[in-house]
Each structure stands twice: as C-alpha cells, then as structure tokens.
Design a protein around this nucleic acid. Sequence first.
RNA 1: GGAGAAGUGGCCGAGUUGGCUUAAGGCGGCACCCUGCUAAGGUGUUAUAUGGAGUAAUCUGUAUCCAGGGUUCGAAUCCCUGCUUCUCCGCCA
Length: 422
Amino acid sequence: MLDIKLIRENPEKINELLKRRNPELSIDEVLQIDTQRRAVQTEADELRSKRKNESQKIGELKKQGQNTDEIQEEVRKIGDEIKILEEKEAEFDEKQRTLLLNIPNTPDETTPIGTSENDNKIVCGCGEPTEADFELKPHWDIAEEKGIVDFERGVKLSQSRFILYRGKGAVLERAIINFFLDVHTKEHGYEEILPPVLVNSAAMTGTGQLPKFAEDMYKCENEDLYLIPTAEVPVTNIYQGEILNEEDLPKYMTAYTPCFRREAGSAGKDTRGLIRVHQFNKVELVKLTTPEQSHEEHLKLTKDAERVLELLELPHRRVELCTADIGFSAQKCFDLEVYMPSYNGYKEISSCSNFGDYQARRANIRYREKSSGKVQFIHTLNGSGLAVGRTLAAILENFQQSDGTIKIPRVLHQYTGFDVIE
RNA sequence: GGAGAAGUGGCCGAGUUGGCUUAAGGCGGCACCCUGCUAAGGUGUUAUAUGGAGUAAUCUGUAUCCAGGGUUCGAAUCCCUGCUUCUCCGCCA
C-alpha cells in the first residue's frame, strides 16, 4: 500500500512512477476521495469534541441536582449528526483503503523502464548452456522413463498439473529441499521457519495477494483460510502488527513449504513436466530490514539464491526485470533463470524482490529507530532459494549422460545417498 | 466438540454501583543530577493512529482499554456477536 501522505504531497511524482508500470495507472481518484474524507473527519471531530464537553457538563449539573432534560435533548441531536457523519467517514475510509490496496507499488528509480518482458535486462550469466553430442531429452521424458515421476497417476489423484514423485524422484526432491535449507541456514545465516500452509485473509492482504489476486489462490470452503502460493506470505506476516527493535534488524528467515497456485490464465503454457504445476515445493528466503539496509540486502539475498545454483553447477543467469514485468508489490526485482535444454533457453527458477515499505504498510510491520525513538515501517524482501521442482527438472536435463543415465550433482550426494539415476 | 474463567499501555497490574481515567501503581526503557569508580539513590520522561494551524520548533482536535455492533446526553465500565488465551472434560497424530 502506498503512503497516502506521500501521494498527497507528491502526486505528480507518484503518478509518473506508476505510469512506468502501466500508463493506465493513476492516483487521481484516491486523491479525490482523500480530500473528501478529511473534510468529513474534521467536521465529525469538531462535533465529537462538542459532545464530549457538553456531556461532561450534564454530569456536573446532575451532581448539583439540576434538571438536564433540555441540554440532554440538544446533545442527543449532536449525537444524531455525528452518527450520520461517522457513516460517511467509514464509507470514505473503506473506499480509500480499497483503492489503495489495488494500486501496485511504485517501481524503484533504478528499475529499468519497459513495456514488456522483452525489456528485461540480462545482468550476468554463469556457466555455458549445456550441449551434448547426443540428443538431450526433455525432463518429462526422462522422469517418465526412469519412473521417478508418475504424471498420469498424479492427475488421477487430483487433476492435471498435479505431480506424483516416486522412488529416487521423491528422494531427490527431498534431498534438494534439505540442501537448500542447509546452505541458507548454515552458510548464509537464515533462521529456518516451518510455517502453516493455510493462512487467513489478513495475511494474504499483508503481502499483496488479496484483494486483487483472489482467483489465483485455493480457498477453503466456509473458512477464512487460503492455501499459500508461497512461503513469503506466512513468513513475511510473522510480525504483522508488531513494532520491532532496530537492533533486531535485519532479520533473515528461510522456509520450505509446498506452494499452491491455481494458475488461472496460464492454460496451454508449460503444459508438460514439472515447470508449471498447481502444487510445488519451494524454499523461500525472506528478509526484514530497515529502509537504509534494503537495497544492499536485496543484492545479498539474490546472491544467496545464486549461490545454490553455482553449487549445483547449473548454467544460469540473472535478469533485472523492467517496470512492466515486476510483481504487483515489488519496486525492484531480479529473476534467476536456469538453462533448460528442452526450452532451448532459460527458465525462471527464482524471483528476488525488494518491496520497500509497501508490504510493511499493508501488514503494519514497523520498527523503533534506536537513535530517535521514532516508529517507522520496515522494508521487506524475498526471493526463491529456490523452486525445488524446477531445480529437479533442470538437474534431469542438464546432467543427462550419453548412456542415458542421470548424474547427481556432487553437493547432493550426501543428501540422496546415490550419485546416479539409471 | 462441551463446560467455566479471562482479554487494559513494552511488560506486570488497578479500575467493572457508567461522567473528574489515555487510563493509578510497579517493572523495564530513555535523559539529567548526585556520591572518586561500581552498586545504590534523586528528578523528569516514556503509546499509536489520524485531522487542523504554522516555513519550522511547536500548538491543538479526534480515535483507540481484543474486534465489531448496540444501549445512553455520556461506555474500559452495561448488553449482543465474533476472535483469542487459560482450566476441566471429550476426541485425536
């Protein structure tokens, strides 16, 4: 959520930044509501003040045994007026909040300006695209042949885009999860979190999934509970409504969770294999920082995610997303992409975003500045570290051998207990 | 799931025959003072949100005693609903 005061004071600037995302975005309507809202509030405040004073007088008069019928009647009329104004106030509040919740974050000044994903900037690469003197198979064929993913029975149990891992496939998936968590907790200093995978609408609103993206999520019937689309939601919302101490920042947290996405609107995209499914595993990195720290911490977080790709020896690159492609709540974002022979190109495997105070404002997460004692919003960051299913797919494709076997990356041996899939 | 009790500021805790309570008292935090250092002591200060006035320091209004409704001239205090916590019972991995 954007700061209404900031909007009020710098309307042109905010508008300009929003239009970098999408020329149709504008804060004009919310500004208009804000003006009306404040007028009503001032009026109501004055009446409330009057009622308070008059009521006190009634108390005193009654103590002296005087008749107060007349003044009581007057104050009752004030009360009626206040009631009408309060209804208006609530209406404007609600309207303003709804508008604000549906306005995306302003892009960071350094986010490249663009109109589509074609304007994203490739920042750096690592490793050459895998080549071989035999035909590289797509991971869905490998997985099927080796019997490590049972696509058909996964569909039978649920519906299309649900995955059933078995045998070495299940072990490899679990090995990758443990490897990721170990690297981030032991080498990068993150605290491991194991959160609920069902959260309420307040949490979903805090990180920006609600109200705008309700149709992307699975919701429980008759309950205010949603399946999380990413661990970002529960982990970022841990401190919802709280005031942290400056010395507790930055906070590093990592969590493995399954993630659930309806993938509404992506029919026909990535229909085969492990790339786009309704339930997948992911290890997420979340940081809570002061405003001063967030930029540097964002770079560090991205490196933390890149580090596991390096350890796995998977060819990859970093892309800086342009203003048209960054997520709704983000102000700046790097994607990490892994090379996938089946796509003859790179595929997103991590998305590392800096949200500034946008999520903190929604979730009301603040900290007390030590020097001044002032309370202000924290900054939130997160990134995949990494998507597990896509990592498994990348390993299958990039580590296939001419004899048809799949080598397991060295760093995973201690987790899998085997070094090849035959 | 059933029965009881309770939810007050960073924490503990008073206030529940409605008005003088944003809220006593204590702890903790912060600032200053004092004794050679330490310990102890003294004084003061210590919520958040949102309006208005002012270039600003600042002054000032309103709201908030779990949340949302209601009663009343007036609600931390009375009534209703919900949520959460605790105790007991049931169930269960």
